[in-house]
Nucleic acid binder design. Structure first.
Length: 799
RNA sequence: GCAGGUGUGGCGAAAUUGGCAGACGCGCUAGACUUAGGAUCUAGUGGAUAUUCCAUGGGGGUUCAAGUCCCUUCACCUGCACCA
């Protein structure tokens, strides 16, 4: 085996020492911005999954650089986060110490992979120089009225003593520790992300974000067109507003359901005769975990309000109001009109509580079809006989004319809860003054730096540990100079990653987050590689953030990412997820140690379709190490001939074409296989020219940069590959003079024959019919049809 | 339940988008060289009742021709999930 250890170390040192991949803005060159999601520097080090996407990104970066483009390929660390905080709590040590250690490990690992990164642009979100600007941008949100404080019932993890976003408490348990999530009222900073719902949907149009990622985002935003309908309450001069997407079925609304948390219950608790029962139901609902509550296989439960009755606004009918936990306070208005004939949930509920079921659409199967689109309206007064669309339009009109409702678009997307009661995050740069209210910290006083504390654990009442530090909390109001208190909440983990791609463009700027000139030069991210797990949250937050900055005139583009792809995961050899607990984690360091970085890189590119998950197989890696060793040994086969060898000229051109196209279309696995085919052929012909070898290593360079650079140097094949250019192919030379034509009879292969590439139709048929085995199948039969596909085959159809 | 995805040898996968199914690699078998081989090289490797036939989850269809297009069905994976 060739001496990969020394070779790889040598070139890695060379690249770092010589800043080979340093990039500066250059208006004479086309730019290419390759972004890969930056890692969280955890204590467990780089994962082979990281190695896969970092390598793929590096292949792109090197390829585009060789094509003559000015490539921005930066690297950094998403370095605020819970593991470092947990470590700090245990060891009473500032989390930055641990974080910096981890970053050093990660950086070395990334370097030992041979990434062609411009290390002068490294960013780390936990550095004051970085989060100063995260805070600065938050103040922009505040000044624009998009950051506000609100008393929110939040998801509360009693173990982490921490408020969780909806996203972090999916499934009713804490995303970090799996403790069941409780509800708690908390005054929180919020960002008005919901207002950006339409912009977040519309902005997708001009991007090449992977379709399935777009779909995931659109579903997450959950836009639905419908109407607010106002139901008067019989007993009091008040009303209940519901949201519905099918106001055309209003005549079929035979009851109403409101969420157990609906404020009207408290408001009229004195009028509700069975309030005890209501109260009991509320308590049960509160104690239920989110999972229990949203299990839609569960039998419907509820309580009928005794003392409050709704009035259906289209026919004046009195209808009962129930509370039930299948109606969620967080969606719509927390109240619905129930149309049991055409909604499965309402149907189940009506059956259980013996409520009238009035069909209003003809032909729908009540028990199965919710809101069937078939059939015209019946039992629906002025809507009778109309189809869905016409009925909806007529009802919208009717609602607005009679002031009993209006069109309304509802979204699942909520405003972003931006507060965390934690230590290891960006302090929210706000000061509260009794006189002036919330006042942002002046720009010149940024960053608000995280102080040293003794204990990193949140306080028992759930406040950040920062709240215990008087020197931090007590300050003066920037507006009136009076006594004021600092906000002690910090930002969520997502904040730093909302704009890191901007910082990379101008990473060392100390007076702006990035200069407009540089942002204009680098523009949008040309290719953003990341995992499917970030398809919704991270990408939506980052897009929201960027759209806002654009509206403020602070960044040149509204959409930050031109193209987004999603790579598959690397699984353990048995197809399971790699995890510490299962003990099946493969450490890329060990692999590099044993087989070399080039072998690891090549294998990770060869392992399979880049967009799909792939199971780890060390034998496959061995195979790639063997491949590289054979490439190394080609040195022994060098001859003194000039130019490329005639025996492989066509294959060389074909391979250049194939590898070029495959890298562009992210088909890394077939690019590597094309190189293997070329190697096989080179070995077969016994000796190769220097020109042959040079082309080979040029093509292999993005995948295996160290060995190719070394071969180039020891054989003196030409200038350094890292500053060289990508080989070109001649389309005409990719085509052979002759090819093996397939001859079919009735679609079955009956023979093959070598024919000239420019043989005519007639010649092809003539040659086909001369094959003995073909004769066997056509003699004595009538020829019905002769199909000729030039360059491919002849198919003779006989009867 | 809804949305998206995937089903091809013993395994990872290819297939110029309707034109030779299984490229390339792993593994396996046999051989060569070796004191030795978890090194290297050579040959073979989908199945079978083998001039041919059968094979891309199953069934049907379109076509001269289907892994690819259409209908239908099954299985698995991933999101979201009582969203009105």
């Amino acid at each position: 085996m060739y001496n990969f250890k020394d070779i790889e170390k040598k070139w890695q040192k060379y690249w770092v020492d010589n800043k080979t991949f340093k990039v500066v803005e250059d208006n004479n060159k086309k730019k290419f911005y390759m972004l890969v999601e930056f890692p969280y520097p955890s204590g467990s080090g780089l994962h082979v999954g990281h190695a896969r996407c970092f390598t793929a990104s590096d292949v792109q970066a090197r390829f585009h650089r060789l094509k003559g483009e000015n490539v921005l390929f930066p690297f950094g660390f998403d370095s605020f986060g819970n593991p470092a905080e947990q470590y700090a709590i245990k060891n009473h040590e500032h989390p930055s110490i641990m974080t910096h250690k981890c970053i050093d490990v990660f950086r070395n690992q990334a370097r030992s992979l041979g990434l062609s990164t411009d290390w002068d642009r490294e960013v780390s979100t936990c550095e004051p120089e970085y989060y100063k600007w995260t805070q600065w941008q938050f103040i922009k949100f505040f000044n624009a009225g998009l950051a506000y404080k609100d008393e929110k019932e939040i998801n509360w993890c009693p173990k982490c003593k921490m408020g969780l976003s909806n996203e972090d408490s999916q499934g009713g348990t804490c995303v970090r520790c799996d403790t069941p999530v409780e509800k708690k009222l908390k005054n929180q900073w919020m960002l008005r992300m919901k207002d950006y719902s339409d912009k977040l949907i519309d902005g997708l149009k001009d991007t090449e974000i992977l379709d399935k990622v777009k779909t995931a985002q659109i579903n997450w935003i959950g836009r639905s067109e419908g109407a607010h309908v106002i139901f008067k309450i019989k007993e009091v001069d008040d009303e209940l507003t519901v949201f519905t997407t099918r106001c055309d079925t209003l005549y079929g609304a035979t009851f109403m359901v409101i969420s157990p948390e609906h404020p009207i219950l408290e408001k009229y608790s004195n009028l509700i005769k069975n309030f005890d029962e209501v109260k009991k139901y509320q308590d049960i609902a509160k104690s239920k975990s989110e999972i229990e509550r949203t299990d839609n296989t569960r039998e419907k439960t509820g309580v009928k309000l005794d003392g409050l009755t709704g009035i259906n606004p289209v026919n004046g009918k009195e209808i009962p109001i129930y509370i039930s936990d299948y109606v969620l306070m967080g969606y719509g208005t927390g109240a619905i009109m129930a149309v049991p004939a055409h909604d499965t949930r309402d149907y189940e509920f009506a059956r259980k509580f013996n409520i009238d079921i009035i069909p209003v659409l003809d032909g729908g199967d009540i028990s199965k079809e919710a809101y069937t689109d078939d059939g015209v309206h019946i039992n629906s007064g002025f809507l009778d006989g109309l189809n869905k669309e016409d009925a909806l339009n007529k009802m919208y009109e009717y609602l607005e004319d009679n002031k009993i409702g209006s069109r309304f678009t509802n979204y699942k997307l909520q405003d972003w809860i931006f507060s965390r009661q934690r230590f290891w995050g960006e302090p929210i740069p706000m000061v509260h003054c009794d006189k002036c209210g919330w006042v942002p910290v002046p720009e010149e006083d940024l960053p608000v730096v995280l102080p040293n504390v003794k204990n990193y654990e949140p306080t028992d009442d759930g406040e950040s540990p920062l709240s215990l530090i008087d020197e931090f909390v007590n300050t003066t109001c920037p507006k009136c100079g009076g006594h004021a208190k600092r906000e002690t909440d910090t930002m969520p983990n997502w904040a730093g990653s909302c704009w890191y791609f901007l910082r990379y463009m101008d990473a060392c700027n100390s007076h702006e987050f990035a200069s407009m000139d540089k942002m204009k030069y680098w523009g949008q991210v040309d290719l953003y590689d990341g995992g499917m797990e970030h398809a919704t949250r991270h990408l939506l937050y980052a897009r929201f953030w960027n759209i806002f900055l654009h509206e403020q005139g602070l960044v040149p583009y509204s959409e930050p990412f031109q193209r987004r792809i999603a790579h598959g995961m690397i699984l353990a050899s048995n197809g399971e997820k790699m995890s510490k607990s299962k003990g099946n984690v493969v450490n890329p360091n060990d692999m590099i140690e044993e087989y070399g970085a080039d072998a690891l890189r090549t294998y990770e590119m060869f392992i399979g379709d880049y967009s799909k998950d792939a199971a780890w197989n060390e034998n496959g890696l061995k195979g790639c190490a063997k491949f590289l060793d054979r490439v190394w040994r080609l040195q022994d086969k060098l001859n003194d001939k000039d130019g490329v060898s005639s025996e492989i000229e066509t294959l060389l051109h074909q391979t250049i074409k194939k590898v070029t196209n495959d890298i562009e279309s992210l088909d890394y696995n077939t690019a590597v296989s094309a190189l293997m085919i070329l190697l096989n052929k080179m070995e077969e012909i016994g000796s190769i020219s220097r020109a042959d070898y040079r082309i080979f290593i040029e093509l292999l360079n993005p995948f295996a940069p160290h060995i190719t650079e070394e071969i180039n140097e020891v054989c003196g094949l030409g200038e350094q590959l890292s500053v060289s250019s990508w080989p070109k192919y001649d389309e005409a030379k990719t085509i052979l003079d002759n090819y093996e034509m397939v001859v079919q009879v009735n679609g079955k292969i009956r023979g093959k024959i070598l024919v000239s590439t420019n043989a005519s139709r007639e010649e092809m048929i003539k040659l086909a019919k001369e094959i003995d085995n073909v004769k066997l199948f056509i003699d004595g039969h009538d020829i019905v049809k002769e199909i000729v596909v030039p360059g491919k085959l002849v198919n003779i159809v006989v009867k």
